[in-house]
Write a protein that binds this DNA or RNA. Structure first.
Lengths: 335, 335
DNA sequence: TTGTAGGCGTTATCAG
DNA sequence: CTGATAACGCCTACAA
């Protein structure tokens, strides 16, 4: 591939002038400029960003770490981030950790070696994250999404998970439910799942009820019918289920309906995230809606501001409860 | 940030030796190596990939262009690609075009300037793609996913869309359906949608039936009830609907059920892609399953092979029809 | 096993 | 407005 020097030669100018024709065209006489562009065209010249990056010490690249892309919430967020980044001339270096701290660390290290201009991270468990601790020392623009470590004061874009589930639980309580269960994926892996369970416990306690143990599924996004069914029988049977995320909720609904349960008549279900699919299907899923597009945009905007040397204020984003067809008063009006 | 020279000085060796300690440790005596690593640690040295890339003319980065991340098929494929790439020490530069050819072109140009080692592209419409034509001239490793332009002989990872829908239509025909409709997103934007419609037409014609006009929705992934309902009444009312993708199918199902239709008793629905959600929900969606994970892996594997100088053979991947609860014989046994 | 030196393709500083 | 030249940080013959 030809370089600036060849273009310069062919155009009969110096390398410096050729370079200027590209980076600051107005500093070059039009005639000269055209000769340079013609030569460039003829040689199939393409500016080398690597060399430019080495020289300018700026990559216009942002490193994005996500736990997974299986869950559409991350895809939606990534889409929003990419749109805004692209608009500002930034590229995204994307990697997934599959919720594994070791991979998180390796990925971040690699991104730092690549000299990305900033990082947008979603880690599995922010409070026990070695990566975030290490990153404290680096002076690199950084935004967390979904996470918010208790101790570290890092800029974060997220909703108040605990409060949100407290309110969602409140909705079920108000409908008359007393036996409410909480379904989650692997709790140890996800700080968010734990926060959401806390919100449930808070709401139950405040209502004078005993929070049930969390029902832990082996997978973040699939329910296991064998674990579930026993909990729906007997005097303490759940009449409503809160799920830590929408995919889990949709999986629960599907399996229960397939087994013959009527939703919401026999069982009410509430999810978390507010993914599109929940609205599409029938019965539609009640859920705590996270403003994912906005979160993605905000993460990038915040990062760009940091890169520009500003320090914008943090703050939680507002969630919203979406009433769907998956909830109703409990069938048997016990008590 | 400190560089190799500083590390070398502190360790009391030359820059070359310090460099070797990182790139080929076995060429350096252990004692020396340890001194270098210690110095590196002390200085917080981090190898600069940009400089390395400039020098070695290799980035170990792959450019990935996708139409969108809203559709989980792309997310799933991306996830698979990222996993395999990461395993081989490659990073992914990801960008989305939102099905816009102009963005496709700009994105690819940018990736080339970044000197990615290879490209994995999914364009909106391969047969009318300026990007692909231009790329013919570049000698860069390239794999298409989902696309397969008629004229250009580019390596592609995909299923036979036309055949697949022909078979899916066959399933409906065998069930006794005669009035089968095909629902699509914006046809002009997507070569795949057109191929799939072709498959439907083929099957209908072969069965001695007249293919209906495609029912075009304004959006790739949402159905519009107002467009749909009129087609379900009258003597030529559809008893079965083929959709060009699963999200569209799930949207159709949800809306119809919400309106009071029984699925599959009154209307059968078949999708395309085989996304997870289709299996989860009740009734589960019948669909043509694309092996998305395999496609993602294969795309990367094929690309890495090209980068290694090999030229692996192309070939379609096998699709598979998944029977779900969304299809049944037509209600009224006309004819 | 280690050192020397040149170059990867830009940009930026300084003269002219 | 244009040209010469020195970095940016690393790798890699080649020589010692």
């Amino acid at each position: 591939m030809s370089d600036l020097l060849q273009v310069a030669k062919l155009a009969g100018v110096s390398r410096a002038t050729a370079a200027r024709a590209f980076s600051s065209p107005d500093l070059v006489r039009e005639e000269t400029r055209n000769k340079i562009f013609a030569a460039s065209e003829q040689l199939g010249f393409r500016p080398n960003h690597i060399a430019r990056q080495l020289r300018t010490q700026s990559t216009r690249m942002i490193g994005v770490l996500l736990p997974s892309l299986q869950n559409p919430i991350f895809a939606a967020q990534l889409q929003a981030m990419e749109n805004l980044a692209q608009l500002h001339g930034y590229s995204l270096l994307v990697a997934t950790s599959n919720y594994q701290p070791l991979r998180e660390a390796a990925i971040v290290e690699n991104m730092l070696r690549q000299r990305v201009d900033g990082l947008v991270l979603t880690v599995a468990d922010a409070d026990h994250s070695a990566v975030l601790l290490d990153l404290q020392r680096e002076a690199i623009p950084l935004v967390l999404v979904h996470n918010s470590p208790q101790r570290l004061g890092l800029p974060a874009v997220r909703v108040d998970n605990r409060l949100a589930v407290m309110q969602a639980t409140g909705v079920l309580l108000k409908l008359g439910h007393r036996h409410i269960g909480m379904i989650a994926g692997p709790m140890l892996q996800s700080d968010r799942a734990r926060q959401r369970y806390q919100g449930y416990c808070d709401a139950m306690s405040k209502a004078g009820l005993t929070p049930a143990d969390v029902v832990e599924m082996p997978d973040h996004i699939h329910s296991d019918l064998n674990t579930l069914l026993p909990l729906l029988h007997g005097p303490r049977a759940f009449t409503a289920l809160l799920c830590t995320n929408d995919l889990l909720a949709l999986s629960v609904m599907g399996e229960l309906m397939r087994t013959g349960y009527q939703i919401p008549r026999q069982i009410s279900v509430i999810g978390f995230d507010g993914i599109e699919m929940g609205r599409m299907q029938f019965p539609s899923l009640s859920s705590v809606v996270q403003p994912l597009e906005e979160m993605g945009r905000l993460a990038i905007a915040h990062l760009l501001a940091q890169i520009a040397g500003e320090t914008p204020p943090p703050g939680c984003l507002a969630h919203q409860f979406r009433y769907g067809e998956s909830i109703a008063p409990p069938a048997t009006q016990t008590l």
